[in-house]
Write a protein that binds this DNA or RNA. Structure first.
Lengths: 143, 143
DNA sequence: CTATTAAAAGATAAATATATCTGTTTATCG
DNA sequence: CGATAAACAGATATATTTATCTTTTAATAG
């Protein structure tokens, strides 16, 4: 439903949002979010390429969020690593259907649209600010 | 978002619903739905195992729907081949979270729930009966 | 300028999902 | 009964996703 890779990306971004003080290395984030370190490094690359995070090389480098959590929808994170794609034309390539989806594919496409909308309207800030016993990702506190 | 396999299963079930007169072979369904025949055979097995369809061996055998389209939600088809699974406990296995999901995973889980609900409340009959120019799956008519 | 740190890039491996192929079993018909 | 049709089962192949490992490039501190 939502890929492992997207999960990892969301964890990393939430982690950075929780710790906005300074850049954090892939190794730090990986430890914190329990994501395989070398795989996370690819994920971070993608996030940087899509300007969800900003990367700083060299000593004291690492990753920081490129946006305020308030203006960062979950969808942006997901789409950076594993884009949600709507159905644009008949998957069976039926000529008479074309862009005019049949009820089956319209239904599926609408469901995808709903998910997309959900993740578009919910921001990282909303995740951070929701009152809860469970601090996102962590047993307690900060990195 | 929804796997290829689920797509195939839905196509097959819609195809059977459109042609309730007699059993249809995997080969027929595959031709009609443009699903790879040998792969479809596995998909049909799963649908039969979950009693979404009924299988009849031997000459003049094939598959027929096991239920009225009115009482067959898309979710049942999807869950037969590629179950939608909710998040039940913290994917990071944090002891302090456990079944008490943090806001991130609650959000993701809710999104999955929405999809599940969408597919639970929409039936194969609704697909068949929706007024449209595009007959589901086909250029025109029946098998 | 050199040593160190950390991202970036590339190559490889393992796991899973998708797809194909071959044979076996079961039912139907003549 | 024997021939045939078709589901069922198992083995193999291909593609994609997930994961690991190694090398290179860039930035910083001393």
């Amino acid at each position: 439903m939502i890929s492992q890779t997207s999960e990892y990306a969301l964890r990393a971004v939430v982690c950075l949002a929780q710790n906005p003080d300074k850049p954090h290395t892939t190794a730090e984030i990986a430890r914190w979010t329990k994501v395989p370190e070398h795989y996370l490094s690819k994920v971070m690359l993608a996030l940087a390429k899509h300007e969800v995070v900003y990367s700083k090389k060299g000593l004291h480098g690492g990753y920081v969020l490129a946006h305020d959590p308030e203006s960062l929808p979950l969808l942006n994170v997901i789409n950076a690593v594993d884009p949600i794609k709507r159905i644009k034309s008949c998957p069976l390539k039926l000529k008479t259907h074309g862009a005019n989806l049949c009820p089956l594919h319209k239904q599926i496409n609408d469901a995808i649209g709903t998910i997309e909308e959900t993740f578009r309207t919910s921001t990282i800030a909303m995740i951070l600010n929701e009152p809860t016993q469970s601090i996102p990702l962590c047993e307690s506190g900060k990195i």
